[in-house]
Design a protein around this nucleic acid. Structure first.
Lengths: 156, 156
DNA sequence: ACTTTGAGTTCCCTCAGGGAACCCCAAATG
DNA sequence: CATTTGGGGTTCCCTGAGGGAACTCAAAGT
C-alpha cells in the first residue's frame, strides 16, 4: 500500500487509486475478470506473495469491487466481480489498449478482444458520451466540477 | 516501486503498470497533464516526497512518457507529455469516469470535461473501434493474440 | 557579499512487500 | 479410526521503498 492516503483527495484519479492503486491490485482484478476466481489459482498465476494476495483481496472486497462467495460445503471460496468491479475493468481495457500500442513490440498484443455486438476483433476507443466523437487528452478542457476542492485546481 | 518486475510479463496491463504502476505516478502524470510542469509545483500540489518525485519523473522520462525541457538559461526544467504520454492520459480519463460514478458521493465530480468538438460537458465512453457500439467487460471475449505467452491464458 | 529560487540529493526511520513455513478445516482414503 | 490431501489463509523474518527534513548547487537579483 502507498503510505499516503489517496482516498481523501478531491480527485477521482486519487480516489480510484485508493481502490486499485496498490501494487498487484489491477492484476488480481484482471485474473478474476478472465475467470481465475480462487486464491491458489491467482497466487500461482501471478506469483504474488500469499500474504499480499490476502490483503489485496480483502481490500477489493471491502471496497465493493469483489464479492467472496462460498462454492462448496467445505470452507472454499471464490471471488467474483461486482457491478462496480466490472465497470472498473474499463480501466484495465484501456490500459491494455495503450500497452498493446506502445509496449507490445513485434510479437503483437498478448490478447485480443472479440466484440459480441459485431463479432469482430476490435480495440476500445474513447468517445464523448454527448456527441460520440473521439475524446482524448487534447480534445477537452478540464473544468472545476461541483465537488471541486475549495481553492486549488486539481484534475480529478 | 513494486518489487516484482511487471514489465516482463506477457500482459499489456502488467507492462503498463511497469510504466505507471508505482505509487504516485498517475497523479504526477495528471498534474503535468493539467499544466503543472515543474518540480516544486508538483511536489507542493501532491505532497509527495522530493526523493520519490525525482525517481518517478526520471522513470516516466526514461519510458518516453514525459520529456524534460529547459525553460531558462539557468538550470531550470519542466516536464511535458510526449505523444505516448498524452495517450496514456486515456487511462486517467477512464479512472476519472469510474471514480466520479462510484466514489464522488453527494458533492459530485471534482472536475468535469468540456469536449471541444461539441462544446458540451461530457463523459468518456468506451466503444468498439470496429462497430462503434459500447464495449465493456461483458461485451467481449478475451482471446489469445499473436504475442500470447506459450502456455497459460492471461488477460493482457 | 547575501539572499532567493528551482531542482534536485542525502540521511535516517518506519513500514510494506517477498518468501517460506506453518496452521485449520473438511473430505477422501486406507 | 488415523492419515493424507487440498484450499485458503497466517505468521515469521528480512530487505528495501516511501516519508520527512535537512542539505546542496548554480544562477540571478539587490
Amino acid at each position: 500500500m502507498q503510505r499516503t492516503n489517496f482516498g481523501d483527495m478531491a480527485c477521482s484519479i486519487a480516489r480510484t487509486l485508493d481502490v486499485i492503486g496498490e501494487p498487484w491490485s489491477p492484476l488480481v482484478l484482471r485474473d478474476i475478470w478472465v475467470g481465475m476466481n480462487r486464491f491458489d489459482q491467482i497466487q500461482a498465476d501471478l506469483g504474488i506473495s500469499r500474504k499480499v494476495l490476502t490483503e489485496r483481496l480483502g481490500h477489493l472486497v471491502e471496497h465493493g469491487v469483489l464479492e467472496k462467495q462460498a462454492y462448496d460445503n467445505r470452507p472454499r471460496y471464490e471471488y467474483v466481480l461486482t457491478a462496480k468491479g466490472r465497470e472498473l475493468v474499463d480501466v484495465l481495457m484501456v490500459m491494455v489498449g495503450w500497452g498493446d500500442k506502445w509496449l507490445a513490440g513485434e510479437a503483437g498484443p498478448p490478447v485480443v478482444y472479440r466484440h459480441h455486438a459485431c463479432g469482430e476483433i476490435g480495440r476500445v476507443d474513447l468517445r464523448c458520451s454527448h456527441c460520440g466523437e473521439p475524446m482524448h487528452a487534447d480534445d477537452i478542457d478540464v473544468l472545476p466540477g461541483p465537488g471541486a476542492a475549495p481553492e486549488p485546481a486539481s484534475a480529478g
